[in-house]
Design a protein around this nucleic acid. Structure first.
Lengths: 342, 342
DNA sequence: CACCTGTATCGAACCGGTTCGACTCGATGC
DNA sequence: GCATCGAGTCGAACCGGTTCGATACAGGTG
């Protein structure tokens, strides 16, 4: 293997001079710099990552802690992962992906062994046991997902309260007065999926403000249960003209439920989901939806993490809690309710 | 940070003794070993990964080169990734995930900087430009996907030729005489997705042997195009009673296509796909399918890679080309054709 | 001409582990 | 009683980078 010593020898200088020529941290004569660069080129020198990490205490690797929970839609996670790895790559960082069950253990291991410069945590719950160790870690961390306590970390998430509000608004603006909100299953909430009730509360508050009736349900996350759930909701509330879906499985199941009831969207019923554009394409879902912004959240988390890694540690920038404003991707599934039309 | 020097001092021994006490590579008296272990415990010592890598030339990290091609069904890739990371974790290895466009560059970079002990390549094409560099690399490599040239690497893949055969057999055994095979889009083949024609050729050969009519198509990999494709195929071949799907998007789109045509499986048409069990669960697909064995392939690739990394380099084990026999996961979507029933 | 300044370079130390060779000491063999 | 041996330990070197302090030398100043 080619070391910087080989490069130095080939260029006829000392190791330190070669190092400075490459890093530019001290002034080296242009002639020498050129000789060093030529030697690097000729010999095919690449610095040994371990040695550099040892000397500089920087690995240029970030740890990505994913968490795949049962009854969750795994493919949705991929968007976040790719958002992180791609942006990290652009910024000169590699990504160590950990899918271990025991996130706390992985976090400790990577942190104390100094394998990474920082962490990105995905799928963060209201009370996430990984956070305590993240705060104590020597490396900074950013999360995708809004936990109960945000101190000491940078937090990124979709603004789910606002999402709930604009979902109600979108339908209420069209004249809908009664709608059904289908959330994730109850146990997703119980294990800390706070975004579920955040969206629901935002929706409820806005519904109350506008005098709209909102029926709230926790739907199943599996087929065919969710299909039956949807039928039951529609049977129970024949006056409801709008459907808000904060549940990927419900969105995926809805087309065949509507078909079998002889309903069409938006003619008979308006539908508004909350999922990513990729998800919509994959499932060919014709419903307008609040974009979950997975890609953007992953990107932003990495950007902030890298800024903190590379920032002056003396100037501890205040920690961010960045809630991305929801945007609706219009696919034409919202219209005025049947009764209000000719 | 706690170093082995701190541990040695606390235990009242030299650094080298502490190191040997922990590694067991030389005999150290039980009393000293215990004192060292106590010190490690008390101080919370974890070896610095960079330092260890520098000294041992082993990083205990494997590089995972994923390749997300346009018009490919990204969620399917997740299964392979998790198969790799999970098994690697069990074997004591962390996984560096690279999703870079330029796989060749990433490979070179990780290899020459000695960031990883070996590589797993996913989504390997017939003529994959990454392979040439993998063969020249100082680290061993394993692939998931069967390339044209397999020398110098360990190769794992599903036996797609056999898959094609058993897919035809499964339907022909039930009495079907005319079926449609929907493959991946043509350009997936053109850029080296050899598994597409391997399965198609296997199917065609078996169909010819049995006197079965097989209509072959390259379907789109995106919605809603694939839905329209499916409708067209069914319109064109009203006599076809079986559908073979080597195209995830087609499988995902089929339920609504069938519903809108008023067809049910297997009553009106028998369907056999080729995708993983996880995929079926995630998308609630009710079709029997040849399992793509994503998880197993990822696992096997890692196991072989680790064996090679840790094996005696003097004893160069012959390289493997392991084709996993296809198995059908029965979900009840295959039955005799309508005409042959009462 | 002595003095100072700044530029360009070198040698040595350091990061935190691992490992080789040498040393000590008590037990064993003759 | 002395050489031999093995168990147990230590010091030093090494892995391949980075970085600090010192030095050499050129040019400018009083």
């Amino acid at each position: 293997m080619v070391t910087i010593g080989d490069v130095a020898k080939a260029a006829g200088v000392s190791r330190s001079t070669a190092s400075y020529a490459l890093s530019g941290k001290r002034t080296i004569s242009p002639a020498v710099v050129q000789r060093v660069l030529d030697a690097v080129e000729e010999l095919g020198f690449t610095p040994n990552a371990g040695a550099r990490a040892l000397a500089t205490s920087q690995t240029h690797v970030i740890g990505l802690l994913a968490r795949f929970l049962s009854d969750e839609f795994a493919p949705a996670m991929l968007q976040y992962i790719l958002g992180v790895t791609n942006r990290a790559g652009e910024l000169g960082y590699d990504t160590l992906l950990v899918s271990e069950e025991d996130g706390v253990n992985a976090l400790k291991r990577l942190s104390t062994s100094r394998m990474v410069d920082g962490f990105v945590l995905l799928n963060v719950a209201e009370h996430d046991d990984r956070l305590q160790f993240l705060r104590d870690a020597a490396q900074p961390g950013a999360t995708v997902g809004l936990p109960g306590q945000c101190d000491g970390i940078d937090v990124f998430d979709l603004d789910f309260v606002a999402s709930g509000r604009i979902m109600v608004d979108a339908l209420a603006d069209m004249g809908h007065r009664e709608m059904i909100l289908v959330s994730q299953p109850q146990h997703v909430v119980e294990r800390g999926g706070a975004y579920v009730w955040r969206l629901a509360d935002g929706a409820q508050a806005r519904a109350d403000e506008r005098g709209v009736v909102l029926h709230r349900y926790f739907g199943s996350s599996t087929q065919p249960e969710i299909g039956k759930d949807l039928h039951r909701y529609l049977d129970t509330h024949p006056g409801a003209t709008g459907l808000l879906l904060n549940n990927e499985a419900a969105a995926a199941a809805l087309p065949s439920v509507l078909t079998s009831r002889g309903l069409a969207s938006p003619t008979d019923i308006s539908v508004l989901g909350r999922y990513s554009d990729d998800f919509a394409r994959t499932f060919s879902l014709p419903f307008s939806a609040v974009d979950s912004a997975a890609d953007e959240l992953g990107r932003r988390a990495v950007e902030q993490l890298v800024a903190r890694i590379e920032g002056d540690p003396a100037v501890a920038a205040p920690h961010l809690v960045e809630l991305i404003s929801p945007t609706i991707h219009d696919r034409g599934s919202i219209a005025p309710p049947p009764a209000s039309r000719g």
